[in-house]
Write a protein that binds this DNA or RNA. Sequence first.
DNA 1: ACATACAGGTAAATAACATTTACCTGAACA
DNA 2: TGTTCAGGTAAATGTTATTTACCTGTATGT
Lengths: 196, 196
Amino acid sequence: MEKKSTPPPGKTKIINAMRTLLEDRNFSTITISEIATTAGVTEGLIYKYFKDKRQLLHHVLEEYYAYFLDQIDRDLKGVSGALNKLAKVIWSSIDGYATHRVFARIILLEVRNSDEYFQSDVYGLVRQFNKILLDIIHEGIETGEIRQDISTSLIRHTIFGAIEHACLNRVLFNEAISTDETAEQITHLILNGIKP
Amino acid sequence: MEKKSTPPPGKTKIINAMRTLLEDRNFSTITISEIATTAGVTEGLIYKYFKDKRQLLHHVLEEYYAYFLDQIDRDLKGVSGALNKLAKVIWSSIDGYATHRVFARIILLEVRNSDEYFQSDVYGLVRQFNKILLDIIHEGIETGEIRQDISTSLIRHTIFGAIEHACLNRVLFNEAISTDETAEQITHLILNGIKP
DNA sequence: ACATACAGGTAAATAACATTTACCTGAACA
DNA sequence: TGTTCAGGTAAATGTTATTTACCTGTATGT
């Protein structure tokens, strides 16, 4: 109950400003002064709530990611069988990126090039998601739904890689992609390979 | 013959300094002053040869990428059959990233978050590589080696995504990459899928 | 032989930021 | 009723990137 007492309006405005600016600009070109102006607060206030510009970015990502994880949990409810779960996770991920372009931008392009990210709270959430996928793969191997001769981490890399690369182009070049179709094709490729 | 006349020593030193610094630091934390000191030149000279810090980064990447493309061309010589070529491209890419960690760092983490990159000369080289892969996929579909019901660009995304994601973790966490094993498993997964 | 252009380079000034500091205000509360 | 403290401001200070003005040797055309 203690943590939930609504955050001060200034803080909320700052977070929203950052999100807005990230809609069409990349992190490194956004200045503190712009954030302050957009939020309608002074520059100093930003440093009341965030250690620096990067930590603000991480916070914005954290809000997205918490929501994303909730959706994943929800989407997996009632789904049984490792392959079915895999298909669902693929769909949910693509849907998450497709629905929230700023979220996709941040995680695919803006955070991984700094060391602080890997120490941050939000990276803890990312690890949670990794674990979800890894657990599904292990389950699949145990039930015999997934072959044993490919390393589990490589399977994970391939799944994430496919999803991220497909969504990346969409983020970069503003291409529209159909979540359903993309998810279906990636799932199909991962499950069956490209041989006829 | 005009372009090849050895570049001025200062320029070379600057490029090498940037490369050296990127070995264990990320782009945004490297300062112009550090680059100058490491290179043993003054800060001003950097701006004689490069428009700004980012363009220097792009230039470093360009040198790596030109070499990388040469290797790919060489590696593909004498290989026939779309699937064999695909396997070779996968192996060569992983080898390229594994052998040149700085190259991997730059292309996977440091350039894609800026608009200038996509206008740069080096991005032209990246497109060339994309085309090589796409051509192989098309060839495979024509010869019947590759199924037709998955979009070619999605196949490309999955291949690149798998390679990049697998190498990324190794770049980030300094893990050693077994090129042969990683390449073999990715190839296997892409060709046959994960079903037993 | 001589001005001169110019590549290669330096040093110091300036501009563009991020970050810190000192302070103000009103409401809760002991 | 005086005090504390969250929420906020305005201006100073650091840090870096970038620009500017200049220096020096050497090749080059006349």
